[in-house]
């Protein structure tokens, strides 16, 4: 008997009679204004949240507020490599649209701009499906995620209901900049992944 058969046999002998699966939760918390809750939680976990009404407004904000802030707060200087997997930032960022690039070549990316499919109010997590380069939202120094306000749901149950089984080969919920508190429970932002996360919440496009 190989190990597969051995394990399955042992498990079959050991497991009790089948017990039923429970039903879904009766009334998980929903928020009257999920965007407000989302923003509150996002800020609490170290993200910055900007509400905008158009892609142009994002670009303006990036130039006028984001980059100066980046230079001031993180002493980022010189020619910064900014990449985007989201279209519409060609003036501002290197457009990435091919997955046939060695992921290691992104190790010098300062800022990555990507789109999230949905957001969750209770924990500020954003679902970022595989968009071309899997390592990008982790390897960049600073991450910018764009999300449509209308996609913000209250809780994780609603999120998975909306996502269904999913078509993505890979995807991640991302909630905030990477962090650690492994040294004496002191919170430090910027463990291995991005040091900061800015979220642009896109409202009704006029």
């Amino acid at each position: 008997m190989n190990s597969r058969e051995k394990i399955l046999q042992a498990v079959k002998l050991a497991q009790p009679e089948v017990l039923p699966l429970p039903t879904a939760l009766e009334t998980p918390t929903v928020y009257s204004d999920p965007v407000v809750k989302f923003t509150e939680v996002a800020q609490a976990v170290g993200s910055s949240v900007i509400e905008v009404n158009s892609l142009e407004a994002i670009e303006d904000h990036l130039k006028e507020v984001y980059l100066p802030e980046l230079q001031k707060k993180w002493q980022a200087s010189g020619k910064l490599r900014v990449v985007s997997t989201s279209v519409g930032f060609e003036n501002f960022a290197e457009q990435i649209d091919s997955s046939d690039i060695d992921p290691h070549t992104f190790q010098d990316v300062e800022v990555a701009i990507m789109k999230a499919d949905l957001g969750v109010a209770e924990n500020s997590a954003l679902w970022v499906p595989e968009t071309i380069i899997r390592v990008l939202p982790f390897i960049c120094q600073h991450l910018i995620l764009l999300v449509d306000k209308k996609t913000i749901v209250s809780n994780m149950h609603q999120a998975y209901e909306r996502m269904g089984l999913g078509q993505d080969d890979y995807g991640a919920f991302i909630a905030g900049p990477s962090k650690t508190a492994d040294i004496e429970q002191s919170l430090v932002l910027g463990a291995h992944g991005p040091r900061s996360l800015w979220i642009y919440l896109i409202g009704d496009v006029e």
Partner: peptide, 28 residues
């Protein structure tokens, strides 16, 4: 997959008092 809704809500609140970990990565 929908059961992740239950477990991801419980895991990090219990572990460190965060609403969720920064990354919950789904490798398919």
């Amino acid at each position: 997959r929908a059961h992740l809704g239950v477990f991801l809500r419980l895991l990090t609140r219990s572990a460190t008092g965060q609403p969720i970990t920064t990354y919950s990565s789904h490798f398919k």
